[in-house]
Design a protein around this nucleic acid. Structure first.
Lengths: 188, 188
DNA sequence: TCCAAACGGAACATGTGTGGTCCACTATAC
DNA sequence: GTATAGTGGACCACACATGTTCCGTTTGGA
């Protein structure tokens, strides 16, 4: 890994740190944090928008990798979702900046790629509905979003200090899979 | 309701419309949309920040009112949550701008007020855990956030056209209360 | 060691939003 | 009708981020 790659990496990392705290931070701030001149930043990312895009795509890659490495296509669906949750939740801190970036919500192609990254999860859920382990009176799209939303909520809530991030996977899975109501006893 | 109140109202409404589409829109755009001069806008909201705050507080009031009008303190908890969901979900379109406003996430006092607005819900959930209708192995704070998060997710997902907003209350309640897994049969 | 690529600093042009002032116009209330 | 609060247009000054160019300096590989 040559110097250019390292510089690029520090810029992306610095951008995550700086923009998480203040999404309207100036590019000089990012450059300074990366220990790099603003000129260099512009050499790698000519415009602010391109920097953001690179940032989002980097995050997208990491999520996609995490999901793939959890092998959501294997074994019982609930176990598979547990594995995905366990691997994705810890990514939280490096992804929380996504919230505050309007580009993330307005750029249609980025939204599409986000759903593409979740595609393996969608397939697992479909599989679960087919084999009877997941209820099938809920649209798959909704279940995917509800699941992803629960993870986002966990990140936020942990960020606010209302829960600990290490508890998050359990909370997410219990809530999403079994719900918040008392389960009906199966035999009195 | 005198002229000042009406002007203020149109400014807030216009701000919601304009800032929903583009959170970095200029104040002149807001003024124009409100059918008002930029000078007048500045008379009512001296700075951009104050306009945003007023906007958020306005939204906060509406959510608080909606929750209160659903009487979450009455009757079985699950029914109460159903009523809250039914009243809050339709507010979605007029609140979706909250996402894109960084101030919403960074201003500590606004975050606090958001949780205050959810306090009646928190109490209902506590009540549910006490009377055994809700499982008590989940922290109340988490349950509140998970529930609120599910509503936010529903707004987003409806916005993306992945579900219909009129289906949202049922989806939110089913998912949050019972979970996505097939319920265990209670007697074979 | 030497050379080319990478870097950083400075200076510049630019655009744009913002906040503020002034004054003439207009409805509304009395 | 008249006084008064409310309005809006024009203008200005300021700050600040952005993007670009140029050139001297450093670094790392051949």
């Amino acid at each position: 890994m040559g110097r250019p790659d390292r510089t690029r990496r520090s810029l992306l990392d610095a951008a995550v740190v700086v923009l998480s705290k203040d999404s309207s931070a100036s590019l000089s701030e990012v450059a300074t944090t990366a220990g790099v001149g603003r000129t260099t930043l512009h050499r790698y990312f000519p415009t602010r928008e391109l920097l953001i895009r690179a940032l989002v795509e980097d995050a997208l890659d990491r999520v996609a990798d995490a999901i793939a490495s959890a092998h959501p296509e294997d074994g019982p669906v609930v176990d598979a979702l547990q594995r995905v949750t366990d691997t994705v939740v810890p990514l939280g801190p490096s992804l929380s900046f996504l919230h505050a970036e309007p580009e993330v919500y307005s750029a249609r192609d980025l939204i599409r790629r986000w759903y593409e990254a979740l595609e393996p999860v969608a397939q697992a859920i479909e599989r679960g509905q087919a084999d009877g382990s997941l209820r099938s009176d809920l649209p798959v799209k909704w279940v995917v979003d509800a699941y992803a939303g629960a993870i986002l909520t966990a990140w936020d809530t942990a960020d606010e200090g209302r829960i600990w991030l290490q508890d998050a996977p359990r909370l997410v899975m219990t809530t999403i899979v079994q719900g918040i109501a008392t389960p009906p006893t199966d035999a009195p």
